[in-house]
Design a protein around this nucleic acid. Structure first.
Lengths: 240, 240
DNA sequence: TGTCCCCTTGACGCATTTCTGACGCAACAG
DNA sequence: CTGTTGCGTCAGAAATGCGTCAAGGGGACA
């Protein structure tokens, strides 16, 4: 699963290349920002906070190598160098300045995208995963932690499995059958229907302020349950 | 600053290339190990524990792409693919399988070394500072020393390996499977699950003030364990 | 050859989790 | 008003998982 909303900064002095890259990447769901000089790039980065930087080596004025060094003084955002030159000593210098990757033009759009994915994958796994938030409730599916108003909530494996099903299908109605299948696998429905009720009850006791009048886990009589969600999946607090 | 003692595994079926790479890298101070097939590589990795892997794509039998996928099931050790082919779709497939970089032969030795430095630099800074501190506990991954409130703690190799896994993934949940794989390599899970419990117990006896109520190594019932680390996140807990 | 340390395995007690059954309550239809 | 149905809660039994202790085996080293 790729991270669709990643922000990418394109730094190149040629408008044609910027436009080409912009279109290619935007169609893949990335958010794009452009800069045409190294000085502009350094200004823009703190504001735009890109997840990755595509940097042309042959910029007028401050060169790509120098930009890389300046950025590396305070951020480890992945930098992929694009260059028309194939000279090896330049590659080495750029990589040692702090760049993560180096592509020589002309390159295939597919390869660039793959290298972008590889770079984003690396930083992605050291950050906390996406976090689901609604009201006081916070669920981190990657870290497998649940918090309620700042305090950790201890859930048993089945309870967590149940809550996970709700979070994945937030705001959608889940029938008894669907829930039973997601939590207990292919078990018979008839036998486990009551079990579902018991676990819903246990879960509510741990999550709801007043289990009699549930606020998060709503019951749809005769059909199933639904998790009330106000907000969307948001990124974890980035630790820079 | 590069880490001079880094261990590198070379996987290639041609003895000539292995010899050439071996010589080039060893003269730079790296410790080298060789493997001639993909199967051998998968066997060797848990024992040799390389910091980086140079992997030929065109191996007889199990191909480099498949080796990459298998390794990525349990380790994030950087993998740099070496290939005679320039075909773009192969590059993309290899990168998406989990490789970190891709070089097409023939390549300059200088560029390879630079890309190795770049990959090693990344994992180096990912592990945080050279010393990990939380509460009374101090772990020096470089010097392989553990201190508890000023006093040295003597750990057996397995215990240290276990603690290292916790420190590298501080504050994150580690499943039983993950821990077994990181400490005992590709061994069968079923057999070693109990072994894990014993070593956790031993580790706690040496690190925890009251092993009955652990403060550092927390157990997540039914799933795994987690090392409690002081959060370096600057964001304050939201008290809305 | 002997000693020591570490790894491994088995057995056991304890705690938690899961499951099952029984009961009260509310909504609804006849 | 009464019976039915579905939902939620409670409590006890069965199952599972976890942590600890202790003994055997194997390798390193003197």
């Amino acid at each position: 699963m790729s991270d669709p909303g990643s922000r990418i900064l394109i730094v190149d002095d040629e408008a044609g290349i910027r436009r080409f890259l912009h279109a290619s990447l935007e169609s893949r769901g990335y958010s794009i920002h452009e800069a045409s000089t190294g000085e502009e790039a350094l200004q823009v980065v703190p504001a735009f906070r890109p997840d990755l930087i595509l940097l042309d080596l042959g910029l007028p004025g401050m060169g790509g190598k120098q930009v890389t060094s300046s950025l590396r003084e305070w951020t480890q955002t992945p930098i992929i160098i694009l260059s028309v030159q194939g000279d090896e000593s330049e590659k080495i210098a750029a990589l040692d300045a702090g760049a993560d990757d180096y592509l020589t033009k002309p390159f295939g759009a597919g390869e660039l995208l793959a290298r972008i994915r590889a770079a984003l994958r690396r930083v992605g796994q050291q950050e906390g995963g996406p976090v689901f938030v609604t009201g006081e409730l916070t669920v981190d599916l990657v870290g497998r932690s649940v918090r309620l108003g700042g305090e950790d909530v201890q859930l048993t494996p089945t309870e967590y499995s149940l809550l996970k099903a709700f979070v994945v299908h937030a705001n959608k109605l889940l029938t008894h059958r669907q829930l039973v299948r997601e939590v207990w696998g292919g078990a018979h429905y008839e036998d486990t229907q009551h079990l579902l009720r018991v676990n819903i009850s246990n879960l509510r006791r741990k999550l709801e302020a007043d289990p009699t009048r549930p606020h998060y886990i709503l019951t749809e009589p005769g059909v199933g349950y639904r998790l009330r969600a106000e907000s969307r999946v948001s990124a974890a607090p980035s630790n820079v």
